[in-house]
Design a protein around this nucleic acid. Sequence first.
DNA 1: ATAATTCCTCTAGCAGCTAGAGGTTCAAGA
DNA 2: TCTTGAACCTCTAGCTGCTAGAGGAATTAT
Lengths: 136, 136
Amino acid sequence: MFSIGSLSKRTGVKVPTIRYYEQMGLLAEAERSRGNQRRYDKDGLNRLSFIRHSRQLGFSLADIKGLLMLSQHPDTPCADAHDIAARHLDDVRVKIAKLRKLERELKRISACNAAHIADCKVIESLADHGLCEAEH
Amino acid sequence: MFSIGSLSKRTGVKVPTIRYYEQMGLLAEAERSRGNQRRYDKDGLNRLSFIRHSRQLGFSLADIKGLLMLSQHPDTPCADAHDIAARHLDDVRVKIAKLRKLERELKRISACNAAHIADCKVIESLADHGLCEAEH
DNA sequence: ATAATTCCTCTAGCAGCTAGAGGTTCAAGA
DNA sequence: TCTTGAACCTCTAGCTGCTAGAGGAATTAT
């Protein structure tokens, strides 16, 4: 049995964030000490690790809730978890594509050696969408 | 002189968003009709177009505020604007790199044909960080 | 003149936390 | 055992960049 601070250190998830996850229903309400402080065991640690790892992979809290549910019913079809992951992968790919477009555009815009704002390509490009390579 | 709705249609920025920009100090307080409704002219249109375009390129409102300031002082050095754009370009690149890592990891995880959650690689991988290719 | 549309302000909500106030409990050293 | 200081508690508010809705006034079209 260990405290929330200790759980925080072991998982790298900040203390207020742990409490927030509990409030959001991602973590079950923790047991309490006589003085009303949260106490965790190996189970809580595993669950929080799962959450943290999922967050690092960019899953939303809603998705994680779903994944946690699934993980506790070993007999349900794997396809459900797969779907969540696949949808997320799609999202990530879309984001990458968008950011790459941005990168190109920003690179192009930034190539400006003017001395004053009056001639600055950055400002000019922002003011006039017509100067863009592609629409975004 | 045109209404906020008309400005909205011309720029593609939603009405409440325009008001929000005004509140945030990105747009000067608009002139008003006798009945207290906002009226805009070409200037307002240009400024809002600048903002919208900058947002599409992913600049934060704070950055845009800076860029707008700069754009109104044609004699200041272009370097200032350049810095903002370059910093943002860096951010975008960092984001792309992170997302690519995520993409790889998600792709790897999703390659799972198990029938049940019990054997599902998605869940397993999320539960055990040690199964990851790289740290993230 | 009337009805439909647009506009006004104000408040609250979204995600996913983070920070602070004001107060209690715990653990370690004297 | 007592005391101190760190860690804990709950609650509220704030962050970004909007978006939605209530309740009411102005404008525009017929």
